[in-house]
Amino acid sequence: MRVIISDDHPVVLMGLKAALQSYGDRFSIIGEASNGRELASLLSREPCDLLITDFSMPGDQPSEDGLSMLAGIRENYPKLSILVLTMLRNPALVQGMLAIGVGGVVDKMAMTRELILAIDVICAGRIYLSERTRKQIEETAIANNEPGSISPREAEVVRFLAQGLTVSEIARRTGRSVKTVSQQKRDAMRKLGLDGDKQLYDYARSNGLF
């Protein structure tokens, strides 16, 4: 199986590579990327069967991070199996990944325990979610019409705001208008019952958005 791995943390790449190589000839790692731009270039040059990538990747373009990056990959490579490794565990973001067509989401803390199982499951055409992620989704109101739930795009806006980006910067990164991002911020805060940026940051920190 031809595999591309992508993460902006060298230690994670090393660990992932070692885990895959421990299975002998089953996996052939044909490339590694440390940011969204490198990943896009690598995918265009090297056909592969499986992409294992981080969700939060450094980059200035909309296509180089988060849901926008994954959506672009899915559009360009509709048959590619995609497994996301991430520390993010917010149900709305996970929903967004699955809606795009990601085959599995694995918590980085459980990588050594769940990686191969996740690969087997998604290559068999099924969805894999880490145990902790599944529990959080089950325990959280995830339907948009339920109190306290936010959409995947609203969750992404909250994530970027908590990282210190302005509404204009988020608009540029996601390829949306400033008006749209502002509305998504207001909608998220209204649904969550938050009054200001400090509460927004606290929510992001306590709900696995960064």
Rank of each mutant, 00 (worst) to 15 (best):
D7G: 03
D8E: 09
H9E: 03
L13Y: 09
K17N: 15
Y23A: 07
I29T: 03
G31S: 07
A33Y: 08
R37D: 08
R37P: 08
L39T: 06
L42Q: 01
S44I: 06
R45L: 14
M57L: 13
P58C: 11
P58Q: 12
D60H: 03
Q61W: 11
S63A: 13
E64A: 07
D65S: 15
A71P: 07
G72V: 10
E75M: 10
S81T: 05
L83T: 02
L85Q: 04
T86F: 09
M87A: 09
V94R: 04
I100H: 07
V102F: 04
V102R: 06
V106S: 03
M109G: 14
M111E: 06
T112C: 00
T112V: 00
I119S: 03
R134T: 14
R134K: 15
R134G: 11
Q136R: 14
A141N: 13
N144D: 15
N144P: 15
N144W: 15
N145Q: 12
I150T: 03
S151Y: 06
R153K: 13
A155M: 08
E156G: 01
V157L: 01
F160L: 08
Q163R: 15
V167H: 04
V167A: 03
S168R: 14
E169P: 01
I170C: 10
R173T: 04
V178G: 02
Q183P: 05
R190P: 09
R190A: 14
D195L: 09
D197I: 15
D197Q: 15
Y201M: 12
